[in-house]
Simulated assay, not measured.
Amino acid sequence: MFRASLMSLLAVAVLAGCSNTGGSSSTAPEAAANNDGRCEARGAEFAVGKQITPALVEQARKASGAQMARALGPRDVVTLEYRSERLNINTDAQGVVTRVNCG
């Protein structure tokens, strides 16, 4: 229950506009060029295997070109409508990213 609440809180924080704009170096690729806000999941594949953080969610969102992103734990309840502008970041029970996809 706590993990699901934490993951939901993380998604809300990202959607509320939280971002890390510090000068830290990043291995994230540049944002997808001219995709009209549609998600390109391959741009966010760098996140697989990393611990989920609000900063990682934002980096992955930008790298995919998506307008929004959500972090999903293994027991999170989610809506299943497809949204071409949304990046889904799936994690395991320890909060490690296992998969990224659009929708």
Rank of each mutant, 00 (worst) to 15 (best):
T79S: 07
S19M: 07
G65N: 09
E45A: 05
T27W: 03
F46V: 09
A28D: 04
A66E: 01
P54R: 01
S19E: 13
T79Q: 01
A41Q: 05
S25I: 15
Y82C: 06
S19R: 05
K50W: 10
N35S: 15
N35K: 15
Q51T: 03
S24Q: 07
S84W: 06
S64V: 00
C18A: 15
C18G: 09
A31G: 12
M68F: 00
T27D: 01
S84Y: 09
Y82L: 11
Q67S: 08
K62F: 04
N35I: 15
A16N: 13
Q51I: 10
A41F: 14
D76N: 09
R83P: 11
G22N: 14
E40H: 13
V57M: 02
R70M: 12
V14K: 01
T79G: 15
I52R: 10
R75I: 08
G23Y: 11
C18N: 05
R38M: 15
A63T: 00
L72P: 03
N35R: 02
N34M: 06
D76V: 03
T79H: 11
A47V: 00
A63H: 09
P74Q: 11
E30G: 10
E85Q: 02
C18L: 14
E81W: 13
A47E: 07
G22Y: 08
G43V: 06
A55Q: 00
A69F: 04
Y82S: 00
T21C: 11
A41E: 11
E58T: 05
N34Q: 02
G22C: 13
A66L: 01
T53K: 07
G65F: 06
M68D: 11
D76P: 02
G49Y: 09
P74W: 10
Q67K: 11
K50I: 13
E45V: 03
L72T: 01
R38A: 14
T27K: 01
A32S: 13
S84F: 08
G22D: 02
N20Q: 11
S25Y: 10
R61S: 05
A66H: 05
G37K: 04
A33G: 11
V14D: 02
R42Y: 04
E85K: 10
T21I: 10
R75D: 06
L15H: 01
P74H: 10
I52V: 02
G23T: 15
Q59F: 04
K62L: 06
L80S: 00
A31P: 10
A16R: 05
K50M: 13
V77Y: 01
S26A: 10
S84M: 12
V77T: 14
R83D: 01
A28K: 14
G65I: 06
L15T: 11
A71I: 01
E58C: 10
K50H: 03
T21M: 00
S19C: 06
Y82P: 00
L56Q: 14
S84R: 05
V77P: 07
A41W: 00
G22W: 01
R38H: 15
A31H: 00
N35L: 09
A69K: 04
V48S: 11
E85P: 08
A28P: 02
A16I: 10
A60N: 00
S64Y: 13
E81M: 08
L72A: 12
Q67H: 07
G49T: 08
R70P: 13
T21K: 10
K50C: 08
G37P: 12
F46W: 03
A47C: 05
A69S: 07
I52G: 09
F46R: 13
